[in-house]
Amino acid sequence: MSPNLTYVIVVGVLVAAGVTLLLERSLTRVLMGVILLGNGANLLLLTGGRAGAPPIVGSAPQEEMSDPLPQAMILTAIVITLGMTAFLLALAYRSWHLNGHDEVQDDVEDRRIMDLADRDEVPDDDVDGDDDEESPTTDERQLSTTAKGGRAG
């Protein structure tokens, strides 16, 4: 089978644009990236089947029909993407509702460990100190308290 160069180029552009958007922080952009990526993947599926007349028996000779299998797959994929889009939109709205923006935030706990790494420290542990009632320094405590906020579920 010989590849259709137009498809190949469009696939490349859709994926490139999709990835560029996907790497953004705004959820709306991320979502648009997902949609473009999905379109790119669908077109790539189409590249794997030949083009031709609509695959409706009786309307054209069978050997001139386009390959129906990629079409069925794409249809499934399109509809799944629709569901995902709806979900992501709801997520973006919810994020906006809670935070006043729809940008993806960094993880707080990870940030805490990165801070430890920057300060060349180790996690609070049994290693040092002499008595048992020791507690972490105040700012650490506050940090971990904020980290746990909304987690008690």
């Binding site: 180029i9 490349g12 994926v15 644009a17 990835v19 560029t20 790539l44």
Partner: peptide, 18 residues
């Protein structure tokens, strides 16, 4: 990154279909 991924995907599509 986007361009690189796009190029790789397109390249793969080309090779696979061929």
């Amino acid at each position: 990154i986007g361009v690189a991924v796009g190029a790789v995907t397109a390249g793969m599509a080309y090779v696979a279909a061929g």
